[in-house]
Design a protein around this nucleic acid. Structure first.
Lengths: 152, 152
DNA sequence: GCTAGGTAATTGCGTGTGCAACTATTGACC
DNA sequence: GGTCAATAGTTGCACACGCAATTACCTAGC
């Protein structure tokens, strides 16, 4: 078997490994978050994204990109969170097609409660994953990614 | 902000990056496979897993692990593929609770057709991802993973 | 040999998702 | 100023998923 064929195998195997690690992390986060604060991973992702824009609005489309969801799924996701009074829709004045979302007090409070649980779970799962020879290299790579801006 | 806080941020950011890359690859594979051979990514994963066990059976449970799916989802996934005559259920003699699955001729043929599409899409997507500074380190790590056994 | 506890797989049910079709609004062109 | 394509967001619909309950079977223990 030649070098080119090996490359195909390596990519396929790498993809399976990535998918395995992703599934592992997501299911653990799902369990931890839904048990403690009744949030799914995507719901937490929304709160996290909104919080990271501190005080700033976010369009539906940006939310869709941040969660890797379709527009329709994003609409319903925002509906669920709005029904729980965790965020509010804000009509935008300069483009009346656009809709901004922002966290409510309750939303920020729930996020503050969920965040340590999220972070601890992530730390634990990554440590577990790093102990598996199969997954370790990918976990290492995650650590090596530089933060987008100065995080201090 | 201290080193410990940075570590939390780095993990969270790494996880978002991993999720982004995973979502990117999965959606591209989904599009390519469903358009050309009417298979979803998990369905392809099943055919691939069965094929990699060349001629060998695979229990439902193993399939569930390979696809990161629940037992119920695995049952229905196998149902769909069986309805399309791509695989067959085989009762196991020594443990009559267990059910083996194996590819049919049609299943193997469709896999052979799907595989190059899968591989080419994966190559293209990984190349695209590697061009994004944000995703590149993770893609590098995937390439660096050694194949489980001698692949030649 | 029979019962009790555990495991493999399946089914009922509620829910989240994507696609396609739709509405509302914007911006470009003449 | 009116028309037309493009964009933002929402809704109808079908479908795949997870959880919990169920069935069938195996394995101890007595």
């Amino acid at each position: 078997m030649g070098i080119a064929d090996d490359a195909v195998e390596v990519r396929a195997h790498g993809w399976r490994t990535l998918a395995a690690l992703h599934g592992l992390i997501e299911s653990e986060l799902e369990r931890a978050l839904s048990a403690s604060v009744d949030l799914s991973v995507v719901e937490y992702t929304v709160l996290d994204a909104l919080n990271r824009q501190d005080g700033w609005h976010m369009r539906m489309q940006q939310l869709a990109r941040a969660t890797a969801l379709s527009p329709s799924a994003t609409t319903r996701l925002v509906n669920r969170l709005e029904d729980r009074a965790l965020l509010t829709r804000v009509l935008c004045a300069d483009d009346r097609r656009g809709i901004y979302t922002e966290l409510t007090h309750a939303g920020r409070a729930l996020y503050e409660k969920a965040r340590p649980i999220h972070d601890e779970t992530l730390e634990r799962v990554l440590a577990d994953a790093q102990a598996q020879p199969e997954l370790a290299p990918v976990v290492e790579a995650l650590h090596a990614i530089a933060l987008p801006v100065a995080a201090g």
